[in-house]
Design a protein around this nucleic acid. Structure first.
Length: 276
DNA sequence: CGGTAGACTTGGGCGG
DNA sequence: TAGCCCCAAGTCTACC
């Protein structure tokens, strides 16, 4: 998604307009974002009330009144947009699913240019099982420096890859993995079992800081991400290394380097983030 | 099991 | 300009 700060921003923006609203009708435009047949999906949601709006890692979790959960993974380009009752303004360009609400409350639109996103409907039990496959919430109490140090020691994968593994910690993606490694002054290519306790403490602080500050800025819009109200996030202007290859490091002015690691870009300052 | 490369999909930009 | 171009917030699979 849209990573954790973007998902959190969307959840906050959906809470007020969606909590307590009920689904009148579901219109499926692109069934390939569903884990069920379109008819089945629409039928199971008709009449359901949204009771609580939350997030797990990068996923939006919309709890229904009967304790089922609609889990939305936004992939690379998914949006969850509230449309007012009048639905003024231009219509969405790439709608995949419309949730029309009862009582003239407008609609919730799942919008996705690339359709890498997925919408799944879980029973309470299925949701618990799915959630258990994800690592701890990085802004929650379970994610301690000691737990992080233990996790890092148990693997020989490069730090950037470790951070992208949702079973390790839930919600960090490529933007914030690169930013956190920079703030912690660790080479993102370093094997995690080569990092010492002090590096783990720095990384713990850096992850929490970058995610918190990105939430405060309502996330990072590179191109596709929007809040539930359709606004862009403001954190892009605060990125230190991500997408800044060739620009001077904000700490030491050495040019930022871009490399490819596991088929994805990795950005770092070769002077501030020395190989251990 | 752990780690990596490619596939999936569409659109924007001409580089990193 | 246009291209068996390049790149992109993610995740799943195959394969070593």
């Amino acid at each position: 998604m849209p990573e954790l700060p973007e998902a959190e921003t969307i959840a906050r923006g959906l809470r007020e307009p969606l909590t307590g609203a009920s689904v009148d009708r579901v219109a499926v435009i692109h069934a390939d974002v569903l884990d069920l047949e379109a008819e089945d999906f629409a039928g199971r949601l008709r009449g359901s009330r949204f009771e609580a709006i939350g997030r797990r890692g990068k996923n939006l979790v919309l709890r229904l009144a009967d304790s089922r959960r609609l889990v939305v993974n936004l992939g690379m380009s998914g949006r969850l947009l509230m449309r007012g009752p009048g639905a003024g303004g231009p219509p969405p360009t790439h709608p995949a699913v419309y949730f029309h609400l009862q009582g003239g409350l407008g609609s919730l639109v799942y919008h996705d240019v690339r359709r890498f996103g997925r919408l799944s409907l879980h029973s309470a039990k299925e949701y618990a099982a799915w959630s258990a496959t994800l690592g701890p919430e990085p802004l929650g109490p379970e994610f301690t420096a000691v737990a992080l140090e233990r996790g890092l020691r148990s693997s020989a994968t490069p730090l950037r890859s470790w951070l992208l593994d949702q079973r390790r910690v839930a919600g960090v993606g490529n933007i914030y993995a690169n930013e956190a490694a920079f703030l912690a002054r660790i080479d993102p290519r370093a094997r995690t079992n080569s990092l010492d306790a002090d590096a783990a403490r720095r990384l713990h602080r850096a992850i929490r800081r970058v995610l918190s500050e990105a939430i405060d800025a309502r996330g990072t819009t590179l191109r596709d991400y929007r809040t539930a109200q359709g606004w862009e996030g403001e954190y892009g202007a605060k990125l230190q290394v991500y997408g800044r290859a060739g620009e001077p490091c904000p700490r030491c002015a050495e040019p930022i380097v871009r490399e490819v690691l596991s088929n994805r870009s990795v950005f770092f300052c070769p002077r501030c983030q020395p190989a251990p």
